[in-house]
Simulated assay, not measured.
Amino acid sequence: MGAVREALDALPLVDHHCHGVVGGELSREYFEELITEGGSWPGISSFDSPVGVAVRRHCGPLLDLPRHAPPAEYLARRAELGAREVNRRFLAASGTGVFCVDTGYAPDRLTTPAELADAAGGTAYEVVRLENVAEAVAAAGVEPDAYGDAFRAAVQRAVARPGVVGVKSVAAYRTGFDLDPARPSPAEVTAAAHAWSARGGRLDDPVLVRHLLWTAVDLGLPLQLHTGFGDNDIRMHRADPTHLTDWLHLTGGAIPVLLLHCWPYQRQAAYLAAVFEQVYLDVGLTLHHVGPARARAILEEALEITPFRKLLYSSDAYGVAEFYHLGALAFRRGLGDLLQDRVAADELGLPDALRIAEWAGAHNALRVYGLPGPS
């Protein structure tokens, strides 16, 4: 296995971006919806995909099943054990010590950060999704003329809650990043708020998204930005993080900016991390979708030019606890094997490889978020 893999396997990971999992039982149809970003389609099973194969191969044994057990057997065993036990097994197997949980997307009853931490024997913190705060302010009936101040005050209240360590935006879904990078004026915000109030719906006005991003800068907390891979609400060409270049120049390194997921833009994200002090990245979500078999390739591209103190681990697990296990397994194997091979080729000293593994798996996130680490 090698010393680097052994060290990573023993390291309590810091999952700096994740979500809750469903606490109740799942039908086959719902399970298949949850394991793919594309949803389920008639006549096409989500098990017949890279992530579906990875679930059967790497998650089945944790349910006392043989590797590659058929989907029907896998789901029957899952139901037999019950959601609570299934979630406990996969969360514990992930070896995660710290969770930073985005609580902003929860159409169903999901586990709370505290419930995740309890099942894994770890510690959990919260990340506030800014679009949710904006939409709650609008739903409360605030007058458009008062929207800017009301949003700022609501965000400040939200991040003052105990356990909040950062904020997140899904601007990639709403407008993309090819926005005017400048801070909008109060008059622009008011005019846009009037238009949004008349139109209704979710926050997708470019001016108000810019206002949201600049409000995040003013907060001083780490800002997570979804980039790249996501469901079909994304317009992928607009989710390339290099569209943020001018905005990053204007913000001047005021806050850490954490680029999430990134695929297929992991190289573009690596460039930004290499040239902007405040930029960090992960390839979460991607890893459990490509599975352990391809995780190394994604990580190698991300690490071509990324400074070693800039790579973080995340699972982006959502809905099913299998993704906590798969994300952690893919990360440990992919990063461990590529670093071990560099040691074998004398491109990297073993002490350096061990330090890089520890940084990426835990310490980089602890430093960026100012966290004390696993207990």
Score class of each variant (00 low, 15 high):
Ala216Pro: 01
Gly220Met: 09
Ala182Val: 00
Val207Asn: 04
Arg161Ser: 10
Val209Ser: 05
Ser169His: 06
Trp214Met: 04
Pro181Lys: 12
Ala191Asn: 06
Ser197Met: 03
Pro162Gln: 13
Ala171Glu: 02
Leu179Cys: 10
Arg210Phe: 03
Asp218His: 05
Leu179Arg: 14
Ala158Thr: 01
Thr175Lys: 10
Ala158Asp: 02
Arg161His: 07
Gly200Asn: 04
Ala160Gly: 08
His194Asp: 04
Glu188Lys: 02
Arg174Glu: 14
Trp214Ala: 13
Val217Pro: 01
Ala192Val: 02
Gly166Met: 09
Ala198Thr: 13
Tyr173Asn: 09
Ala172Trp: 01
Ser197Tyr: 02
Ala198Leu: 13
Thr190Cys: 12
Val189Arg: 06
Val170Tyr: 00
Asp180Tyr: 03
Trp214Glu: 09
Leu213Ser: 09
Tyr173Phe: 12
Thr175Pro: 02
Ala198His: 09
Trp214His: 15
Gly166Glu: 04
Val170Asp: 00
Gly166Asp: 04
Pro186Met: 08
Pro184Ile: 03
Gln156Ile: 01
Val165Gln: 03
Arg174Met: 07
Ala192Lys: 05
Arg210Glu: 00
Arg210Gly: 15
Pro206Arg: 11
Thr175Ala: 12
Ala187His: 10
Asp218Ile: 04
His211Leu: 03
Glu188Arg: 05
Pro206Thr: 08
Ala216Ile: 05
Trp214Tyr: 12
Trp196Gln: 11
Gly163Asn: 11
Ala216Gln: 08
Leu179Met: 12
Asp204Ala: 15
Ala192Pro: 03
Gly200Lys: 07
